[in-house]
Design a protein around this nucleic acid. Structure first.
Lengths: 120, 120
DNA sequence: TCCATATGTCGACGATAATCGACATATTGT
DNA sequence: ACAATATGTCGATTATCGTCGACATATGGA
């Protein structure tokens, strides 16, 4: 990963509403959540949230798909894995293999959607 | 960790010069590096770097100590661990124990200072 | 004490980001 | 076709951030 991509991901997460969205979507895993549901969950107007979602999407942290009138957003676990690998890259170079199990455990099926309508 | 603290850490890393400083200091481990050496390594004026270092320090990512005329900065691994734990918290709650080995491997002695005068 | 070195602080400027009203687009049902 | 729902885009305003010159503080040596 290039440093500019890492900065883009970190900047996307460095805002309270967007970090709430990110964590909310992690809890919902593969199922994802409609934009409107996200907006009411984090308490921001729909157009403001739309801007936030496009920033998260451009950073590679979420993906979207249309489902009827709604647009469903869900976490892009590859983006998450990429960021963690980048942050840990220099730290554990002595035994770089030690971070592999963690990154592998970040596979989509490691995350269990549990609650659906909770405020963060 | 509170969300505002996490945002503070992410914002500290969401800037190219500061991310370079962070990665540079990770490579230097416990030994750390003087502010002037960091400034020339990342190529920013000393007063600009001073601002960046204070932002990293306020976020809890680095610590400083004076050594004669120089001030030595080094990574605060606790801050790093805290951020990773926060980012992973919701993701792997199904088997939260799986991230413990990673966080433990982030102990200071896991990092080997190797090069000392390299540009990132 | 005086000077050189090393770093921090202040203030101002330009750049970037966050917010939200108003309008636009897309989908579904009647 | 029309209205309702769901989301995106545009533009303007305000706030925050990054940068750097100028000055201030701290340390060590002559």
């Amino acid at each position: 990963m290039e440093i500019k991509a890492a900065v883009s991901i970190l900047a996307a997460l460095a805002q309270e509403s967007r970090l709430r969205v990110f964590r909310l979507l992690i809890r919902h895993g593969e199922a994802g959540l409609a934009a409107g549901r996200i907006a009411s969950a984090v308490g921001v107007p729909h157009n403001t949230l739309s801007t936030h979602l496009s920033i998260l999407q451009n950073a590679g942290l979420v993906t979207s798909r249309r489902a009827s009138r709604s647009i469903i957003y869900r976490i892009d676990f590859d983006g998450m894995r990429g960021l963690l690998a980048y942050l840990l890259e220099d730290c554990c170079r002595a035994d770089h293999a030690s971070i592999e199990p963690l990154l592998a455990s970040l596979a989509p099926d490691c995350c269990q959607p549990n609650r659906t309508g909770d405020l963060p």
